[in-house]
Amino acid sequence: MPKILKYILIGLITVFGLFMIGAIVLNIMIASAFGAFENNYSVSELKEEYKTNEKAIDDLILYFNKIKPKDKFVKIEFKDGKTIGRLLIQDKISNSVLFQHWDFSKNILITPDLKNKLGWDLEKVEILKEKLDKADCISIEDGEPIKIGFKRAGLGMYSFNIFQNKESDRTLYEDKCNFILVNRKLMLEYGGGAVGPQCFQNLK
C-alpha cells in the first residue's frame, strides 16, 4: 500500500474514532441531563425519607422563618458548603425581583448590597446549611406551603412541601403528576426541568 494511502486511511480512522467518542460523550451528557444517572424516587421512598428527617426538617423551617426578612420572599439552594446553587430574593408587596443569581460563593451573601437585603452574616448562612444537611435536603423556599428541596434528578427536583396554615386549600395539589398530597401537613412535589420527565415516575 502506498504511504500516502496509508496515511489517508489512518487519518480517516482517527477522525471516525474521534467522532464516535464525541457521540458517546454527547449521549452521556444528554442522558445525565434527563436524570438517567440520578435516583428517581418513588412516592413511598419519599414518604420514608420525610419520616426519617421530619424533626430535622421542622427545625430547619423554624430557623429559616426566624432569619428571613418578613417583607421578602427568599429561595436558596446550596450546591455545596462553599457554593450557593441559586438565590432568589423578591419583595413581597411589589413582587419585584431584588436579586437572582446562580452558582456563586456564599461569601457574596455578606457584601453590603445583599447583607442589606437579607441581613445575614456568614454564621447564619453556615447554620442554615448545617440544618439543611441534617435534614438531608439542599434548598428551602419561602411560601405557603414552604418548600424544602430534597434532591435533584437531572434538571428536576424532588421536594417536601410543608403546610404552615391550617386554613390553606390543599385541593389545589392533588393532580398526581407534580403533587402528591400525603396528609394535612405534607405534600410531595416533583418539578421537572426544561428536559426530562415532568411528573412523578413511580406513584407507588
Results as ranks from 00 to 15, higher is better:
1 M>S: 13
3 K>G: 04
3 K>S: 09
6 K>G: 10
8 I>L: 14
8 I>H: 00
9 L>I: 10
13 I>C: 11
15 V>C: 14
21 I>C: 07
27 N>H: 12
29 M>A: 12
33 A>W: 08
34 F>A: 03
37 F>S: 07
37 F>D: 04
37 F>T: 06
41 Y>M: 11
41 Y>G: 01
42 S>C: 05
42 S>T: 10
44 S>V: 12
45 E>I: 02
45 E>L: 06
46 L>F: 02
46 L>K: 03
46 L>G: 03
48 E>R: 13
48 E>A: 15
48 E>T: 14
49 E>Q: 10
51 K>H: 07
54 E>S: 09
55 K>R: 05
55 K>G: 06
55 K>W: 00
56 A>L: 01
56 A>H: 07
62 L>Y: 03
63 Y>A: 00
64 F>K: 05
65 N>E: 15
65 N>I: 05
65 N>C: 02
66 K>I: 00
66 K>T: 08
68 K>F: 08
68 K>T: 15
71 D>R: 09
73 F>D: 15
77 E>D: 13
80 D>S: 10
83 T>E: 15
85 G>D: 11
85 G>V: 00
86 R>D: 12
88 L>K: 09
91 D>P: 07
91 D>C: 04
91 D>I: 01
92 K>D: 11
94 S>M: 08
97 V>N: 12
97 V>K: 12
98 L>G: 08
100 Q>P: 08
105 S>H: 08
106 K>V: 10
106 K>M: 11
111 T>G: 04
114 L>R: 04
114 L>G: 05
115 K>C: 02
119 G>D: 09
122 L>Q: 14
123 E>H: 07
126 E>R: 02
130 E>H: 02
131 K>R: 14
132 L>Y: 02
134 K>H: 01
135 A>S: 12
139 S>N: 03
141 E>H: 05
143 G>R: 05
143 G>V: 08
144 E>Y: 07
145 P>W: 00
147 K>L: 13
148 I>V: 15
149 G>P: 06
154 G>T: 04
154 G>A: 06
155 L>K: 11
156 G>F: 02
157 M>Y: 03
158 Y>F: 15
158 Y>I: 06
159 S>I: 03
163 F>T: 04
163 F>W: 14
164 Q>G: 13
164 Q>D: 12
166 K>N: 14
170 R>A: 07
173 Y>W: 14
175 D>G: 03
177 C>R: 13
177 C>S: 12
178 N>F: 04
181 L>Y: 00
182 V>Y: 00
183 N>E: 01
189 E>H: 02
190 Y>H: 05
194 A>F: 10
195 V>G: 08
198 Q>H: 06
200 F>Y: 09
201 Q>W: 03
203 L>E: 08
204 K>R: 07
